[in-house]
Write a protein that binds this DNA or RNA. Sequence first.
DNA 1: ATGCCTGTCTCAAAGGATAC
DNA 2: GTATCCTTTGAGACAGGCAT
Length: 309
Amino acid sequence: MVKRYKNDPIKIIKDWQGEDWNVYEERNTQAGVIIYKGWMYERVAKSQYIYILTSDLAEFLKKHDRAQSMKLLGLSVKIVTKFRRVLGLQKKYDYTLSTLRDWMLEHQDELFNQSFQMLNEKYGLTQTEVTKYCTFLRKKGVQRSNKLRKNKIGYANRRIVENNKEALAQCENIFEVQSLLNKKNHRAARYVHNQVCIELGIPTLNDLRLQHLNEKKEWRLEHKEIILNKQYSIKEIAIQLNKTKREILTARSYLKELFGVKKRVPILNWVKEHQQDLNTLSIKELCEKFNLTMGAAIYRRKLLKQNET
DNA sequence: ATGCCTGTCTCAAAGGATAC
DNA sequence: GTATCCTTTGAGACAGGCAT
C-alpha cells in the first residue's frame, strides 16, 4: 500500500464555505466539474482521502437531480446524497433515486421476467443491478408473476421467432420450420413452432396433420362404394373421382384394412424365428444386430405383436 | 426444487417400391 | 392390380442440462 498522505498536497483550495483543504487527487468529469479529494487543511490524515465539496460542485448539484449528478460526475449514491444533505437539497437519507425509482416501476415486468442477457442488451444492466432493482420493487410490494425469468436460450428463440413470425405461420411441415429457425433437431423446432402457433391462435402442425387425416378418411368413406367397386377399372374410378390411380389404389387398400377384408401374409417366418430378440432387444439393438433401419425394426416388432396369440 | 429447452428412444399413419 | 416390406413424416414420453 502506498501511504499517500505522506506526499505533499497538489494544491490548496477552498470548499463551498470558504474552508481551506489540501488536495491530493483531482479528476475531471463528463460535466466539466473537477472532483477533488484530500484533507481539511493542516488536519492529520488517518485514513483515505475524502471528497471535497467545492463551490463549483455545489452549484452543479443544485442544478441537477441526484441520478443525473451520479451519472455525470461519476460519484456514488452515498457521496452525492451526503453532499445534497449538506446543501439542504435532501431531507432524508434515502437511497432510492426518484427518476430511477420511476423507471424501475415502469419496467417492473421486464425486470422480473426478462432474461439477464436481454436486459443487458437493451438497458446495459448487469445481473447484480437487475437483482437489486427487483429487491427494491419487492419492498415496494411488487410481486413477480408465476412465470420464471426467461433464460438465454428462450430469449434467443423468441428473438428468432419475432423476426420470422409470418414465415413461421406459413410453414407446412417441420423441415421448413427447422431450416427457418436454424434448428438441427426437429424436436426443438417443433417446440418453438407450437409456441408461436398458440400465440398466434393458428393450428399447430399436429392439428393440421390430424385434420388432414380426418378429411382424407371421411372422403374415402364417402366414396367407398365406388372405390371398392370391382366393376370399374382403377383408371375409370380415378377419372370419375378426379384423383390419380395411385390415390385410388391407396384408398382401396385403406378401406379394405379398415373393414378387415385385407389379409396380410408377411414375413411371419422370420418374425417367429426371432421372437425372443424382438421382445427383449431395444429397437436400436435390433437395428444393429440384424442390420435393419429403425422403421424396419419397428415394423417387424409390430408384426410379431399382431400375430402373437 | 422448479420450469424451460433439447436430445434420445419409441411409436404410428400414409405412401412408395417392388415382386408377383 | 395386389400384397408386402420399408421409408417418410410427425409426435409423445422421458431424462438431463441449465438458469433461476
